[in-house]
């Protein structure tokens, strides 16, 4: 088993075991979706109209929660130093962590979105569009989140600062995710244009994030 696979297997095992990182993100997502109607009112038409936005923001916030555990735990027990010294390049270690993180938070969030969307009275086309855009966008969110997590890894109470740093990076993904969803539901813009940009953003983040995150971790830990 290659080092990369071993690392990824470790991450997956930890995420599934450690107090259920995956479940916690989904439960937080549910909490956010539950809170909104109390604030906005139970008007089903309104909720259906802003449904895609609520789901996207819920996913964004839930992602922020999960990011804290991406590097922090390893930094505290010294595993991060080991990863830096390992023959596997740090960039690839970050890739393994990002993939594992997405599989255990981004993906469950995406799959649970239609269920919560039904609570918001969203029509089926909207649900489908949201799932597709989330599928394309959540990898990007995990990647830019990894950059933020890596920048604050050397700090002890870096959680809130990390969220502030990551937010501008997430905005383009949010914009195009919502835009694609809206295009699928109402048009007139074609769905493909913003959707392809969204895919491009996620791919770009997937390339940039390991480089930036690995650099930040190296600088933070020496």
């Amino acid at each position: 088993m290659t080092a990369f696979n071993a690392l990824m297997a470790r991450e997956l095992r930890l995420a599934i075991r450690l107090g259920g990182g995956a479940m916690m993100a989904v439960i937080f997502f549910l909490t956010v979706v539950t809170l909104i109607p109390f604030a906005v009112g139970p008007d089903l038409n309104l909720l259906a109209r802003i449904g895609p936005a609520l789901l996207w923001i819920g996913v964004l916030l839930s992602n922020l929660l999960a990011l804290d555990r991406m590097f922090q735990a390893d930094q505290e027990d010294g595993s991060l130093d080991l990863m830096l010294m390992a023959p596997l390049p740090m960039e690839l270690s970050v890739v393994a962590k990002v993939i594992a993180s997405w599989l255990t938070t981004g993906l469950p969030l995406t799959l649970s979105a239609p269920l919560f969307g039904m609570m918001l009275n969203m029509p089926p086309e909207a649900l489908g569009a949201v799932v597709l855009t989330l599928l394309a966008g959540t990898p990007g969110l995990t990647c830019v989140g990894a950059i933020g997590a890596a920048l604050t890894v050397a700090l002890r109470r870096g959680g809130l600062l990390m969220a502030i740093l990551v937010m501008p990076l997430m905005i383009p993904i949010l914009i195009f995710g919502i835009s694609a969803t809206g295009a699928a539901i109402t048009g007139p813009t074609p769905f493909m244009t913003p959707f392809l940009v969204l895919l491009g953003l996620s791919l770009g983040a997937f390339v940039l994030a390991p480089v930036a995150a690995a650099a930040a971790i190296r600088f933070g830990l020496e």
Binding site: L151, L169, F219, G220
Partner: peptide
């Protein structure tokens, strides 16, 4: 050096933001 990384990531992000916000 960590802040330098953030600054450069932000620099890459700025044209993307401008493009996204214009689209939006």
């Amino acid at each position: 050096r960590i802040v330098a990384v953030l600054a450069l990531v932000g620099a890459v992000n700025l044209p993307i933001i401008k493009f996204s916000v214009d689209w939006w």
